[in-house]
Amino acid sequence: MTAGNTAAASAAASPGGAYHFGFKKSVGGSRPSINEEGFKGILERHQAIFLGDTTKKELYLTFDNGYENGFTPKVLDVLKEKKVPAIFFVTGHYIKDQPDLVKRMAAEGHLIGNHSWSHPDMSVISSGQIANELSKVKDGAAQITGQQQMEYLRPPRGIFSDHVLAVSKAQGYTSVFWSVAYKDWDTKAQRGRQYAYDSVIKQLHPGAVILLHTVSKDNAEALGQIIDAARSQGYEFKRLDQLTSKSY
């Protein structure tokens, strides 16, 4: 999972040049911002994804799957019913533990993204180790789904550096961050369907990349309502590979 810093607080670099992704949240449809963070130039240089086209009412659903907590089948059921595409960022543990769900994701038209094999802090491992973390996930997913392509990466815990994004890009990946999120990954601090719904809807903005964790019971229960409310506001859900313009 990605327990990233989604608060408005600025993300300071560690002595090793690593950052923990953070941003200023959208309020009332306003554009979120990373202008106060020290890493905006790094994301731009490596063409990482933070926002889509902020002139269009398009939304991109992304899910982090570090482990299975019993709610991903419900999430997939809702996406299928609502005809909404998504991308699921999976770890090695998830690939080994839940091959049938990974196969279902692909079969139902969703993208499979790379969340690393062992969920390490990639800013403290070597280029070779990063490449190995990514290749093991790609190969493992391909064996399950038959799909050889894997183009998107979400750094574990939202921790990254210029080096991490450079090595990932050299491996053929676009790093994907997010512009809508809330603290949903703590399974011991679930606060109900309405809280999940409110937390997402109040942050919606054109070009939003939405981060959700499938371990959250609240997310599974609120997802259908979130989709319906977003569509009622004129938003369209698109798959990440349909994103044509990046904003920073």
Results as ranks from 00 to 15, higher is better:
143 Q>N: 13
53 D>E: 06
127 S>A: 12
54 T>N: 12
243 L>F: 07
163 H>D: 11
217 K>C: 10
102 V>N: 02
198 D>N: 14
190 Q>K: 01
89 F>S: 01
90 V>W: 01
144 I>Y: 07
195 Y>S: 05
169 K>L: 12
175 S>A: 15
134 L>I: 02
189 A>K: 12
244 T>D: 12
66 G>K: 06
129 Q>N: 13
218 D>H: 02
29 G>M: 09
179 S>A: 13
162 D>P: 03
226 I>H: 00
214 T>M: 09
77 D>L: 09
158 G>P: 02
173 Y>N: 05
107 A>P: 08
207 G>P: 00
64 D>L: 06
89 F>N: 05
58 E>G: 07
133 E>I: 00
157 R>G: 04
189 A>W: 06
107 A>V: 10
53 D>I: 00
149 Q>A: 15
165 L>H: 04
34 I>F: 04
228 D>S: 13
162 D>T: 02
70 G>M: 03
56 K>R: 13
45 R>T: 10
200 V>F: 07
84 V>Y: 06
144 I>M: 10
74 K>H: 12
91 T>Y: 09
57 K>T: 08
61 L>R: 08
214 T>H: 13
75 V>G: 01
134 L>R: 01
214 T>K: 04
236 E>F: 12
189 A>P: 07
37 E>L: 10
157 R>P: 00
86 A>R: 10
171 Q>G: 09
132 N>Q: 14
84 V>W: 06
154 R>D: 05
87 I>N: 02
22 G>A: 14
104 R>T: 14
72 T>W: 07
79 L>W: 11
41 G>W: 01
71 F>W: 15
172 G>M: 12
209 V>D: 01
121 D>W: 12
172 G>P: 07
173 Y>L: 05
37 E>F: 08
244 T>Q: 15
229 A>V: 10
86 A>N: 09
141 A>K: 03
133 E>A: 06
1 M>S: 10
224 G>S: 07
6 T>S: 13
27 V>S: 14
70 G>R: 04
38 G>D: 01
172 G>R: 11
97 D>G: 08
40 K>L: 07
46 H>C: 00
106 A>C: 11
78 V>P: 03
135 S>H: 12
216 S>A: 11
3 A>P: 03
64 D>Q: 08
109 G>V: 12
19 Y>E: 01
112 I>K: 00
181 A>Y: 05
102 V>P: 00
172 G>F: 08
127 S>G: 11
27 V>I: 13
239 R>L: 15
68 E>T: 06
178 W>N: 04
